[in-house]
């Protein structure tokens, strides 16, 4: 079985990614220089350069997560799937609001959100001192493979 999650990527998300790289590397030119010098010794840098350059040039971006290993499916208990479904259709302000809406204990909801965020199925966006949970997936597809 294969679960494919197609992530939501709004223009604001792309802007955020560009800002993160700018903060990390300074400029695209400086990152390019670093990649040319380090070549394959810094694999993450090379990928960041390709992404930064092409996203800044307006490339169409597809961000996909695939879960294949059966152990990973532990992350998708019925309660967690319910959380995912709720987040795909609602926009709670905080974890506490979400827990109240689902009539669940705050700590259990917090633990479930952490487990889901580990696989990037949801985003926990810092807002002041609180974390705002949001669905990262625009679409989830399940395929049975032979």
């Amino acid at each position: 079985m294969k679960i494919q999650i197609v992530k939501k990527r709004k223009p604001a998300d792309i802007e955020d990614m560009l800002k993160v790289w700018e903060k990390k590397y300074g400029s695209l030119t400086s990152l390019h220089q670093k990649v040319l010098i380090s070549k394959c010794t810094s694999p993450g840098m090379m990928d960041d350069y390709v992404m930064w350059k092409n996203l800044a040039d307006g490339a169409e971006f597809h961000d996909i997560i695939i879960l294949r290993d059966s152990e990973i499916f532990d992350a998708l208990s019925p309660r967690r799937v319910e959380l995912l479904e709720y987040l795909m259709n609602n926009n709670p302000k905080s974890i506490r609001t979400l827990a109240t809406a689902l009539h669940r204990d705050y700590k259990n909801v917090y633990d479930d959100l952490n487990a889901l965020s580990k696989y990037e199925l949801i985003d926990l966006i810092p807002q002041g001192r609180a974390l705002k949970p949001a669905a990262a997936a625009a679409r989830i597809e399940i395929t049975f493979e032979s």
Binding site: H62, D63, I64, I65, I66, R68, I72
Partner: peptide
């Protein structure tokens, strides 16, 4: 240009991250 980033979990703490520019 189309840029695709695909993260495939192959085990609990293991993944293959693919980046393809077309």
């Amino acid at each position: 240009m189309k840029l695709t980033r695909q993260k495939t979990w192959v085990h609990k703490n293991e993944m293959v991250e693919s980046l393809v520019l077309e």
